[in-house]
Structures are given as C-alpha cells and as structure tokens.
C-alpha cells in the first residue's frame, strides 16, 4: 500500500486559512448579490485555478445566475509552443451578448492573461464586464487592471492551494500557502 503524500509539508507558511477564505468569499457573495440584483448575471471562470473559488462564490450569491468556463493557454505550455500566441483552449459555451458578466479569477499578478481575456470578452458585447479575483498580487503587476471585487491582497510570494498550482500540484489544498523556496529552488 502506498503511503499518502503530505502536500502541506511543502508549504512554508499558511497565508490564508480555510476559515479566512470562506468568510471572505461569503462577504464577496453578499456584495455581488446586492450589486447585481435584478440583472442578468453570468459568472465566467478561467480554468483551472479558479475552480474552487468559483464553486464557493456562486453558492454565496443569492441571485439567479449563469456560469460558464473558459480555458486559455499559458506561456510555455507545450500545446502552444508552435504558435507563440495565447490560445483559447475552451471558449464560452453560450453568447454573453447583453449579459452582465463577472469574470472570476483565482489570482491577478502580471495581469497579462486577464488583459487578454478582457479584450476577448469585450468583443462579445456583454452589457457590463467586471472583475472578481480571490487574490491580488499588485507588486508584480505589469498591466494595470481595475479590480471590482478583491478577496485578498497578498505579498509578492509564490502561493499555491485552493486552486493554485505549481506543476499541476497543490490545487486541492484547502488553504492558500507559500511554497517553500527549496521546492522550486529560487535563488536570489
């Protein structure tokens, strides 16, 4: 029998506990419910990191809503090496023309991916397009993007858990933690 691997052993510091995340997500849900009352809300989440946040957030919103999922290639991904351009791996399943769209992100750091997505989604003529992110890392921002709903502003550290990965691992941690540098050997 294989012994279970303790993923949390690779975490140097728990930045956001499960309880803190849940409380903040509930608060965001209340605010969104108030702001979008009487409107046609569509939550658009970006795979894969946003999945846990999306799942928790939508259940904290007390309004009729639609959800949709997108996936975009990331720089360095093997599937995109040949083109050298970002690609929509999974597009929206239904039109958002005239809808009030709330783009749900797990984390904003450089803003490059989000900047691309905003331009892409605006081309689909939503009535409104706003941004909701669980984590905001402004120190690393390259593209300034107005964030309408922000869970937590975090320091400039590499974090994993609650959907965020390193090498596709750690997404299933219930908290957000700082990965031990020795795991990825950052040397400054």
């Amino acid at each position: 029998m294989t012994r279970p691997v303790d993923l949390s052993a690779d975490i140097g510091e728990v930045l956001l506990t499960e309880e803190a995340i849940a409380a903040r997500v509930a608060e965001l849900g209340r605010r969104i419910s108030e702001d979008y009352a009487g409107r046609n809300l569509t939550l658009v989440s970006v795979l894969k990191g946003s999945l846990p946040f999306m799942a928790d957030l939508m259940r904290q919103i007390s309004l009729p809503l639609r959800i949709d999922l997108m996936e975009v290639s990331s720089y360095g991904g093997t599937a995109t090496e040949s083109s050298g351009l970002v690609r929509i791996m999974k597009d929206l399943s239904k039109s958002i023309d005239g809808e009030d769209v709330l783009l749900v992100e797990d984390i904003i750091d450089t803003g490059l991916t989000l900047n691309y997505l905003i331009r892409y989604l605006r081309g689909k003529n939503p009535a409104t397009l706003r941004i909701c992110t669980l984590l905001d890392k402004p120190a690393r921002r390259l593209v300034e993007i107005p964030v309408d709903y922000r869970g937590f502003e975090i320091p400039d550290q590499f974090v994993v858990g609650y959907g965020l990965d390193y090498g596709e691992q750690y997404r299933n941690l219930r908290f957000v933690g700082v990965l031990r540098p020795e795991v990825y050997s950052i040397i400054d």
Binding site: S74, S185, I186
Partner: peptide
C-alpha cells in the same frame, strides 16, 4: 516605468514553469 528585477523575472518564469 516598471523595473523588473532578477527575482521578478525568475518568478515570472516560475509561474510559466520555465524556471
């Protein structure tokens, strides 16, 4: 103007799995 330090660049590469 934004100054990208060595650490920023490394973290960017880490994010993209190209450390």
């Amino acid at each position: 103007i934004k100054l990208f330090y060595a650490r920023d660049f490394r973290m960017l590469m880490l994010k993209f799995g190209r450390l």
